[in-house]
Simulated assay, not measured.
Amino acid sequence: TDTMMLFTLDPISNTAGILSIPRDMWVNIPGYDYHKINQAYYFGELDKLPGGGPALAMETVKQFLGVDIQYYAQIDFNAFVRFIDEIKGVKIRVEEPITVVVMGTNRKITLEPGVVTLPGDIALAYARQRYTEGGDFDRARRQQQVVLAIRDRILSFDMLPTLITRAPVLYNELASGVRTNMSLEQVIRLAWLAQQIPEQNIKRAVIGTDAVEFGTSPDGLDILIPIPDRIRLIRDEIFTSGGPVGPVALAEDPASLMQAEAARVSVQNGSGTDGLAGQTATWLRDQGFNVVDESNADQFYNVTTFFVYNGKPYTLRYLTTLMDIQNPRVYNRYDPNAPYDIAVVVGSDWAASNPMP
Results as ranks from 00 to 15, higher is better:
residue 350 W to A: 07
residue 92 I to W: 12
residue 69 I to R: 00
residue 95 E to T: 08
residue 325 I to T: 14
residue 270 G to M: 05
residue 357 P to N: 08
residue 9 L to R: 06
residue 206 V to Q: 10
residue 94 V to P: 10
residue 68 D to R: 05
residue 248 V to M: 15
residue 287 Q to A: 09
residue 38 N to G: 02
residue 269 N to K: 00
residue 171 Y to G: 01
residue 187 V to Q: 05
residue 334 Y to E: 06
residue 286 D to V: 02
residue 222 D to R: 05
residue 126 Y to F: 15
residue 224 L to G: 02
residue 115 V to M: 15
residue 265 V to L: 14
residue 234 I to T: 13
residue 120 G to K: 01
residue 93 R to W: 11
residue 157 F to V: 03
residue 307 F to W: 09
residue 270 G to T: 02
residue 193 L to Y: 07
residue 95 E to N: 11
residue 33 D to Q: 06
residue 225 I to S: 03
residue 310 N to G: 09
residue 280 T to A: 08
residue 258 M to L: 10
residue 248 V to E: 15
residue 228 P to C: 12
residue 11 P to N: 06
residue 2 D to M: 14
residue 213 E to N: 09
residue 215 G to E: 01
residue 342 I to T: 01
residue 87 I to K: 00
residue 2 D to N: 15
residue 246 G to L: 10
residue 160 L to V: 00
residue 292 V to P: 03
residue 206 V to L: 06
residue 145 Q to V: 01
residue 1 T to D: 09
residue 204 R to F: 01
residue 10 D to M: 02
residue 91 K to R: 14
residue 58 M to D: 07
residue 1 T to C: 12
residue 193 L to D: 04
residue 124 L to A: 07
residue 285 R to H: 03
residue 108 K to M: 12
residue 291 V to Y: 09
residue 294 E to K: 00
residue 263 A to N: 02
residue 144 Q to F: 00
residue 25 M to S: 15
residue 149 A to D: 14
residue 123 A to E: 04
residue 329 R to I: 11
residue 351 A to D: 06
residue 69 I to F: 05
residue 72 Y to A: 03
residue 54 P to N: 07
residue 247 P to L: 11
residue 275 G to W: 07
residue 101 V to S: 11
residue 5 M to A: 03
residue 133 E to R: 13
residue 295 S to E: 15
residue 254 P to G: 02
residue 122 I to F: 12
residue 304 T to S: 11
residue 11 P to R: 06
residue 82 R to A: 13
residue 46 L to Q: 15
residue 98 I to G: 12
residue 78 N to D: 13
residue 200 Q to W: 08
residue 238 I to W: 03
residue 244 P to F: 08
residue 147 V to A: 05
residue 326 Q to F: 01
residue 331 Y to S: 11
residue 254 P to D: 14
residue 46 L to F: 15
residue 60 T to Y: 09
residue 156 S to T: 11
residue 56 L to T: 06
residue 224 L to R: 06
residue 235 R to L: 14
residue 89 G to Y: 08
residue 317 R to F: 13
residue 299 Q to D: 14
residue 124 L to F: 10
residue 133 E to A: 12
residue 21 I to C: 02
residue 244 P to N: 13
residue 260 A to E: 15
residue 314 Y to I: 00
residue 147 V to W: 01
residue 313 P to S: 01
residue 307 F to K: 04
residue 348 S to I: 08
residue 88 K to P: 01
residue 339 P to T: 02
